[in-house]
Structures are given as C-alpha cells and as structure tokens.
Amino acid sequence: MSLFDDDRTQKKTVHDIGSDLSLLSVDELSARIDLLKAEIARLESEKAQKGASRSAAESLFR
C-alpha cells in the first residue's frame, strides 16, 4: 500500500444545492451537472419501483 494511494487522494465531487458557483471552472460545472443528472436518474428509478410496488399492492386489495 502506497502512501499516495489513489483512493485516498481523489476528491469526491459533492454538490450542495444553492451553493456559490462563481468560483467553479467549466469542467467542474460539467462534472456537477453529470453528478446531478445521475442522481436524478437514480431518484426516478426509485420512484418508479415504489410506484410499481404501490400499484401491485392496490390491485391486490381491490
């Protein structure tokens, strides 16, 4: 194990809603947009799964 292990030195991109964007570069803004698009896709997938579960439960009790 190296002192400069890649897993420890890589900075994880985090975005706080409403944070100041003026100091970010175009590449950093693009990275945040990609991060947020992935998060939206994850949320939509979870919503769809929960909707399907709810529909199945409602049809069972009709």
Score class of each variant (00 low, 15 high):
Thr13Pro: 10
Leu3Gly: 08
Lys47His: 15
Ser55Asp: 12
Asp34Asn: 10
Asp6Thr: 04
Glu46Phe: 08
Glu46Cys: 03
Val14Glu: 04
Ile17Val: 04
Gln10Cys: 06
Met1Glu: 07
Asp6Arg: 04
Leu36Met: 10
Ser2Trp: 04
Leu23Pro: 04
Ser25Asn: 03
Asp27Ala: 07
Ser55Pro: 00
Thr13Leu: 06
Ser25Tyr: 00
Asp16Trp: 11
Asp20Thr: 00
Asp7Glu: 08
Ala31Asp: 08
Arg54Phe: 12
Ser55Met: 05
Asp16Tyr: 14
Arg42Ile: 08
Thr9Asp: 05
Ile33Trp: 10
Ile17Pro: 15
Thr13Phe: 03
Val14Asn: 02
Asp5Ile: 10
Asp16Ser: 06
Ala57Phe: 07
Lys11Ser: 07
Ile40Val: 14
Ala48Cys: 05
Leu35Ala: 02
Val14His: 13
Lys11Gln: 12
Arg32Ala: 01
Leu60Ser: 13
Ala48Asn: 11
Gln49Gly: 09
Thr9Met: 15
His15Ala: 10
Leu36Cys: 05
Ala38Phe: 00
Ser22Asn: 12
Glu58Ile: 11
Ala38Thr: 15
Val26Asp: 08
Phe4Arg: 15
Glu58Arg: 11
Lys11Leu: 14
Ala41Val: 02
Leu60Thr: 12
Ala56Cys: 07
Met1Ala: 13
Leu43Met: 12
Leu35Trp: 00
Asp27Leu: 09
Leu43Cys: 12
Ser2Val: 10
Arg62Gly: 05
Asp34Phe: 14
Ser30Ile: 01
Leu36Phe: 04
Arg32Leu: 03
Ala52Glu: 15
Glu28Ser: 01
Ser2Gln: 05
Leu21Gln: 08
Ala38Val: 03
Lys12Glu: 12
Leu21Asp: 00
Thr13Lys: 14
Ser45Leu: 14
Phe61Pro: 01
Asp5Gly: 07
Lys37Asn: 06
Asp20Phe: 03
Lys47Val: 01
Leu24His: 14
Arg32Trp: 02
Arg32Ser: 00
Gln10Asp: 06
Ile33Asn: 01
Ile17Cys: 03
Leu3Val: 15
Ala57Gln: 10
Leu43Pro: 02
Ser30Phe: 02
Leu43Ser: 05
Ser30Ala: 05
Phe61Val: 08
Asp5Pro: 03
Ala31Asn: 10
Arg42Gly: 03
Leu23Gly: 10
Asp27Glu: 03
Ala41His: 09
Ser55Ile: 00
Ala57Thr: 07
Ser53Gly: 12
Leu21Glu: 02
Gln49Trp: 07
Asp34His: 09
Val26Trp: 12
Ala52Trp: 10
Leu36Gly: 03
Leu60Cys: 00
Leu60Asp: 13
Asp16Thr: 12
Gln49Ser: 14
Leu60Tyr: 12
Leu24Arg: 13
Asp6Gly: 02
Ser45Gly: 15
Leu60Trp: 05
Ala56Glu: 03
Ala56Pro: 01
Ala56Phe: 14
Gln10Ser: 09
Met1Gln: 08
Arg54Trp: 09
Ile17Asp: 15
Glu58Thr: 04
Ser2Lys: 07
Leu60Asn: 15
Phe4Met: 11
Asp7Pro: 04
Gln49Leu: 09
Ala52Ser: 11
Ser25His: 00
Ser53Met: 13
Ser53Leu: 14
Glu28Lys: 04
Lys50Phe: 07
Ile17Tyr: 14
Ser45Phe: 15
Asp6His: 04
Leu24Asp: 08
Ile17Thr: 12
Ser25Ala: 08
